[in-house]
Amino acid sequence: MVLVVLGIDALDPELVDSTAHPNLTLANHRAIETIRSVEGGPSTHELWPTIITGLTPPEHGITLDDGVAWENPLLRFGSAAADYLLPSGLQTRLGAWLLNNTEQDAFRIPATYYKENDLTTVFDGREAAPIGIPNYVIDPDTEDREHSLRRNLGDLFERDLEAKGGHSSADPALFYEQCLEMSMVRLARARRALRGGRHELVFAYTSGLDLIGHVAYEQPSLQDRAYEELDEFVGEVRDDLGDNDELLLVSDHGLQDGVHTDEAMVAGTDPDMVDAIESVVDVRAAIEAELDGTDHTSTPQVTASDDSGRSGAEVKEHLEDLGYM
Rank of each mutant, 00 (worst) to 15 (best):
T25N: 12
T297M: 05
S183E: 03
P172A: 11
E288K: 05
E290C: 09
D307E: 10
G78S: 14
T56E: 06
P49H: 05
G61M: 04
V274S: 02
P49E: 00
S207Q: 06
V122H: 10
L187C: 01
A170W: 00
Y217G: 13
Q178S: 06
L211G: 06
D139H: 10
T142W: 02
I8K: 12
V4R: 01
L149E: 06
Y176M: 14
G312S: 08
G41N: 10
D155V: 09
F233E: 08
A10H: 08
L6C: 07
L15K: 14
D282H: 08
S305G: 14
R310E: 05
R145H: 04
L26R: 06
L322C: 09
I52Q: 11
V250D: 06
P58M: 03
A313V: 11
S298G: 08
A106S: 15
P13R: 06
A128G: 02
V68Q: 10
L322R: 14
Y113F: 15
Y136D: 04
G197F: 00
D270G: 11
V16Q: 06
D83Q: 13
D272W: 00
A96C: 06
S308T: 14
H21P: 03
D240N: 03
F233L: 15
E143Q: 14
I52D: 11
D239N: 08
G213D: 12
H21E: 04
G323R: 04
E127N: 14
D239H: 06
Q219D: 11
S311G: 12
T303M: 10
E33L: 13
R151N: 11
L201W: 13
A304K: 09
V137T: 15
R191G: 12
L24Q: 02
S311H: 04
L3K: 12
S251Y: 04
G54R: 10
T120N: 09
H147T: 02
S18Y: 00
N72V: 10
S43C: 08
G323F: 01
D239E: 13
T92R: 15
V315F: 08
E246A: 15
V259A: 14
I131R: 07
R186P: 00
L26N: 07
P140I: 00
E127M: 10
L98Y: 07
A188H: 06
R284C: 06
L248F: 07
E71L: 05
V137P: 01
A188R: 12
M265A: 08
